[in-house]
Each structure stands twice: as structure tokens, then as C-alpha cells.
Design a protein around this nucleic acid. Sequence first.
DNA 1: CGAGTTATTTATCGATAGATAAATTATTGG
DNA 2: CCAATAATTTATCTATCGATAAATAACTCG
Lengths: 237, 237
Amino acid sequence: MADRKEQSAGAKVEPGNERPPTRRLAPEDRERLIVEEAIRFFAEVGFGGQTRELAQRVGVTQPLLYRYFPTKADLIDRVYQEVFLGRWDPQWESLLEDSSQTLRTRLITFYKSYSKVMFSYEWIRIYLFAGLRGADINRRYIKRVEERLLSRICAAFREENGLPPPDVEPITSAETEMIWMMHAGIFYYCVRKYVYETKVEEDVDAMIRCCVDALFDGVPAVLKSLRPAGGDIRGTE
Amino acid sequence: MADRKEQSAGAKVEPGNERPPTRRLAPEDRERLIVEEAIRFFAEVGFGGQTRELAQRVGVTQPLLYRYFPTKADLIDRVYQEVFLGRWDPQWESLLEDSSQTLRTRLITFYKSYSKVMFSYEWIRIYLFAGLRGADINRRYIKRVEERLLSRICAAFREENGLPPPDVEPITSAETEMIWMMHAGIFYYCVRKYVYETKVEEDVDAMIRCCVDALFDGVPAVLKSLRPAGGDIRGTE
DNA sequence: CGAGTTATTTATCGATAGATAAATTATTGG
DNA sequence: CCAATAATTTATCTATCGATAAATAACTCG
């Protein structure tokens, strides 16, 4: 109940250091602290979380938030921007187009990087909370994924299989849906992990390889190649 | 502001019929109406939705809810039970084991049925809202999916490919993850549709066939089979 | 140092939202 | 038709929550 009230402001409190370190931050520093904590906080409890609790976690009083953000909605908008746009890596797009590696390798490399950045605890939960609220940012984000990522993957599959490029024959929705399946598989792996907190395959990279392989060769082929036991028990049949 | 206040109770109001039809329902009927509306309501706005608004949509006053459910949490629990357990079809499990059809056919049939019941607007949103709240019901549900559905699919894949059954060699997490990919693909299709409300492939059945085919044969094989190639749209039909 | 600036806190308003008690009115049985 | 039962409403309590205004205190610069 009454165990707070001391050490109101800012950063960490060294046990030996008596003075609460740095009250009165520069506005841009305080703002950054607020936004970062807001991301963590809203990711945990959703956008219904109270400004008082957020302020407490930042280590300031609640009215101070309103000096930096006119309304709670403005703060939430800022969180959206930070999470959805601020973490996008443009290299993903060029990586997927880099024909010097096989598409399989590119996909594995890409999803290792992508899942680390985007399909993380904070991102997944903010993404779902925002989507359920009907935030437009999700639609825009999905559009971006389709236009910048999935379309490139589809095109690469065409190219690797000697099929006409998208500008000759447009990508069909069936093709896109197949790639969405892989994307969703990795996405939902993280949902199971960070939202439902169920037991999942520990090795993320192995999981990604598995999904990519299944997408390329089909499950039966992967099953056969997975057979362990000293060299291909059934391979010779 | 003051445009309500008339026609307080129950169902629909015929324009010609002056008397507000059926006030004072039998308790079990009223309870059913409350639960059904609660599912719709919470699916739309989340469990933060206000009891007053829910009551208004049911057509009763807010305190009446508390005659049927001691607290809001109790009502939410009831919604969980109804949505997650009340809609499960035991036939799914036997269908997946029915060796008289090919696994591919079984999977398509299964997912057509499953997605109609479970991956619907209400279910998907209640499921995500509940999961983000940390409700234990989701973990239990996922366990059920793994134990009753995915395990059977994995076993069937083994059988169709002449591999040892699960009681000889236990299902590996890699195998489960591959099946999760397909499950998630169809799940996330509905998330895009009902949560993010983006444009998706209209034909659900086509989407399911597509995912199942890709899972069996790999994307390249599906891509080639999709090719019009001389006039025949689909050789396998 | 000392005054001005401003980051931060204290105090508080007004609306909302879950919950409860008491009044009311529809229904049923004799 | 009347009395008993109970479904439903009216009125209200209390805590919470976003937001604002005024007071305070830390930092800067001459």
C-alpha cells in the first residue's frame, strides 16, 4: 500500500547511491522513457490499461503524461507508429530479391530476422490488441506485408520454377494464400508462445526451417527426410 | 439522448404491434438471451465492454444481468464455456481417423467443417480477447487441439507414408509444428477476415484446398498444377 | 548566487462503470 | 378476482479513470 512514494523520478536506483538519480529529464529523454514503457505496458495489459499505472511504472505522476501527450489516444498512436513502422527493416525486401542464394535459403534467413524483430512479445500483443480495437494501422501493415514481402516471395517462387513473372501473369490469390500460410504458421507460433504461453518447440530456427521445408517439398517429403536413425532407414526402399 | 425508454423488454418490435411483446420471460429463456447477446457483444468490443451497453442490447436494464450472473466475471466465464466447449464437434476426431478416405480428402472435409464452426467471427475474436487477457481456457483449448486433432493428423501422415505409428516412435515437435502451420494458416485467414477486415480470398473452400495441397505436395508442385497448361483448369477433377 | 524557466507534483473535477437495495409490475394459482 | 411469487425496473453507492489547474521544485544562465 504505502511502499512507494519515495524515489519518484527516473531511471534505476543504485543501493549505495542515496540521491534519486536524475529527476527532471530533458523532454526528449522523458518522452522516450514514456513511449518505451508504454509499449511494454500496453503490450501486457492492453490499451485499456490505466494511465496511472503506466505513470507509476515510468516513475512519474500521472498528470505528467499529459504534458507529453495531449490525450491517451495520442500516446497510443505514438505506440503504433513506434512498433509497426519503427521496426521495419528495408533490407528484408532486398534480401528476398537476392537471386544469388536459393529461395529456400533466403526464406529461412528472412524469417529468422523477421521473427526476431516483429514476432516478438511486444509486437505480437500490440498487433493483436490494435487489431481487435479496429485500428486502421493493422490493415495498412498487412497491406505492406503483402506488397513488400509476400509479393516478392510469390515472384521468387515463380522464377525458381520457370513460370511467368507477375508483370506477365499477375499473382493469383491462391498463390498469395499459400505464402500467407507459411507466414501465419510462424506468426501463430509466436502467438502460442507469447499470448497463450503454451509449450512450443524451443528452437525457433528449427521451427522456421521446418515450415519452409514443408512449404517447398510438402510434409511427406519432409517426414521422410526427417527419419533419423543412422542414415536413411527408408530411403533405399 | 431520450429516444429509448420505450419498448424495454425482449425480442423484436413489430411496427404494427403496439404492445411490447413478451416482457417477463422464463428465467432459462432470459438467461439464454443474455448469454447469446453477451457472446456477440464481447466478440465485438472485448470483455471491457460495459454491462449497461450489453443490457441495452439484450433489451433489459443493467441490474437485471446481476440476477442471472452474480458478477461480470461469471458472465464472461459462461461465455468462455459456451464458445470454446459448446461448439466442439466430436465427429471431427473420428473423421480424421477414417481410413476409408485419403488423408487429403479427410483434411479438406475436416477444415471445411472446423473453420465454419470455430474460425467464425465470434469465435475468433472471443478467442483472441480471452487469450490476451491470459485466460487459462485458451491453453486448455490448444491442448485439446493438439491432443485430439493435430496428433491424429500427424499419425495419419505417418500411416499414409509407411512410417512407424506414434506408439512406436512418438510424434516429434517438428512434425507437430508442420501441422500447426496449416492450422495456423487457416486460422490466420480468419483473423485477417474478421479481425483486421482486410481483403482475403473470397472462396473459403478454395483457400482450404490450396493450403492442404501445399502441405502435401509443396508450393512448387501446386504452382505447376495450377498452370492452365493447354485449356484444362484443373486436371485432378 | 539569484531570478527566470519549466519539468514535475499535488489536488481535484466529471464522467463512467460495476454492483446493490428497494420499489414495481407481470404472471400464476387458488 | 385476489393474493403470493418473482421478473424487472428505478434509484443509488462507490471506486475508477481520463483529464485539468494550480502549486512546487529542479535546472539554467547571467
